[in-house]
Design a binder for these strands. Sequence first.
DNA 1: ATATCTGCAAATGGTTTGCGGAGGA
DNA 2: TCCTCCGCAAACCATTTGCAGATAT
Lengths: 134, 134
Amino acid sequence: MGRAGQRVTRQKKLILEILRSTNTHPTADWVYEQARKQLPDISLGTVYRNLSVLKGAGEIMELSYGSTFSRYDGNPHNHYHFVCEKCGRVLDVALPVRTELEEELALKEAHLVRSHRLEFYGVCRDCLEADRAK
Amino acid sequence: MGRAGQRVTRQKKLILEILRSTNTHPTADWVYEQARKQLPDISLGTVYRNLSVLKGAGEIMELSYGSTFSRYDGNPHNHYHFVCEKCGRVLDVALPVRTELEEELALKEAHLVRSHRLEFYGVCRDCLEADRAK
DNA sequence: ATATCTGCAAATGGTTTGCGGAGGA
DNA sequence: TCCTCCGCAAACCATTTGCAGATAT
């Protein structure tokens, strides 16, 4: 924040706080509902606008998986995700980031590789546990 | 194909052919435009319906990256992609698929890991070349 | 003071779907 | 024949945007 021409508004601050205080990778709509508890008159358009600004500033990440909508992550450092195909949750993954994959690709195909994204799909521990209990 | 209750129509066959004959990972709209050259009366709705069916049958893959629209890949076997942030193309990557990552994650977090997806982002060889020529 | 941001509401655009008729098995 | 698929067009829905007033700096 603090980039030239960018103002610090109550709305923007709140949205960033909400996103940083959870690890559930929420949708824009969920962020909107949370924000309304503090600022009842905030609009969904403002939420989308600020999510876009924060993303551009590198403060948050947008996660667009198979779904028809995006999820947002308050942790802007590259890390991997696991998508549970049963409960739909998106979980953080504790594996280290493999930057060497980028180098390997750059070497092999002569592209300039700036970043990469890795997601896993399956059934999460909790859903497996729930199945076992039945 | 040939699954119970699934008919082989001209439209479905054509869409699969189109997708298999290119490695450009086209959008639904591009497939539609190509298909119209053979079947001028085909509708966009039919293209979407068949893309969905073919995906469900494991004949093709849907790629949904940051964009607002999907791309489709006629190669249903897992492989990685490179997205050029300059020209927007999606290119196949020649790196081998790292299934060991799935095992590593399963071991570490006790999830059932079924698959993974890896994408690289940057500037492709051709765009670098074009820049250099200026 | 003034340029950026907000709330509101309408527009956008990729994708989905209901319907009655066509055509594959 | 019969049931699935098609073309058409309207509906859907997450996201974006134009505008006039509010607000951060």
